[in-house]
Design a protein around this nucleic acid. Sequence first.
DNA 1: TCGTGTGAAGAACTTCACAGCT
DNA 2: AGCTGTGAAGTTCTTCACACGA
Lengths: 213, 213
Amino acid sequence: MENRKIPKPTIKRLAVYYRCLENLIKSGKETISSQELGNRLNIKASQVRKDLSYFGEFGKRGIGYQTRRLQDGIAEILGIKRIWNVCIVGAGNLGMALANYPGLSKSGYQIKAIFDVSSEKIGKKLQNGLVVEDLKNFERVARKEKIHIGVITVPANNAQQVADLMIGSGIEGIINFAPAKLNIPENFPLEEIDISLTFRALSFQITMQKSRQ
Amino acid sequence: MENRKIPKPTIKRLAVYYRCLENLIKSGKETISSQELGNRLNIKASQVRKDLSYFGEFGKRGIGYQTRRLQDGIAEILGIKRIWNVCIVGAGNLGMALANYPGLSKSGYQIKAIFDVSSEKIGKKLQNGLVVEDLKNFERVARKEKIHIGVITVPANNAQQVADLMIGSGIEGIINFAPAKLNIPENFPLEEIDISLTFRALSFQITMQKSRQ
DNA sequence: TCGTGTGAAGAACTTCACAGCT
DNA sequence: AGCTGTGAAGTTCTTCACACGA
């Protein structure tokens, strides 16, 4: 068991291992080697072992990892065994899509509320029965529903004030889809997903690829 | 002008600089130093200068960077000056949301078509006038519309065959939202956005954060 | 022998620090 | 003086290589 700081990429890979283990267990596989797990995910075996070694000794030499035991171990590390209460601010296309996305609730992220400021959107009913609420009620609802995670899907120029509102209402972490740099307290849990940035990165790759030939 | 390989994070930051420059130019700012640009984005000034230095000398010593000139330079690098034709496969909530997302077309990514296999979805009309097409027609449409970028928003277990179809139809790059590792030719341009993975990474952060206090 | 766990080496990326242009 | 561009140093992350247990 290493005791250094955990690299951020390691965390994302753990979640990938977890997903792969779900499938392996479903298909009845009981043990797996770092080599085989790595092959399935395009990750080097040594990377798999190193990632796991940060958190303990999950494997048996000569044999590999027990899929069930490893999955439990990763679930423990990532906080997967519990339910997370999530709310979304911004009932545009993306916010609505996330609220209706079954993958999230299946993974333990329950969408408890969705907010907007536009009177056209407030009161709208989603496929899953949720109703868009007025952002004015945010703090009250957030506290009542014990929301852990806030998701920001508003336009860039409103993102900061939404983040401030979330932090002021006792939210524990934020996922930001708005293309804006948020100013938040150091070490406050934050993840960013910037879709247009990803498109830009792809077009750069394409351009490079072509100029190389 | 450095001549080494470009770090991947540099590319994403260039797109961030570009976005920031748009705003600066709008607000009438004509020059900016690496220091000030960095401050606005939580990036160290030296990082800004290093990123830009991979591609040439955009600045003037003692003065900084001309916003307009720098923006043009970055646009050139990232391939922003042109229109990219995009298609989406998977007309679920996320696929629909992307197709209707104005930020993409505003950035030069025109959604030319959206496909699905489900007869319930085929023929559906989107807000923007696009009609969901049968995936069977993919190759024909992709070639006719000269699609550059394919976006995958299907469930994980169908992602690979969609990717194969895209690559076989002359698509130049793929953005994959499905939680699956794609097997594609080495160096084929690919970007991945894995939303549930990001939630997992956030819950880990929250858990860590708490256990530290 | 097979496959883990892990120091040590290597690669990738970031930051420093300063020469040199304006 | 002010600020860039960039080698060199520093940091972070990945891969190697091998001792050791099953």
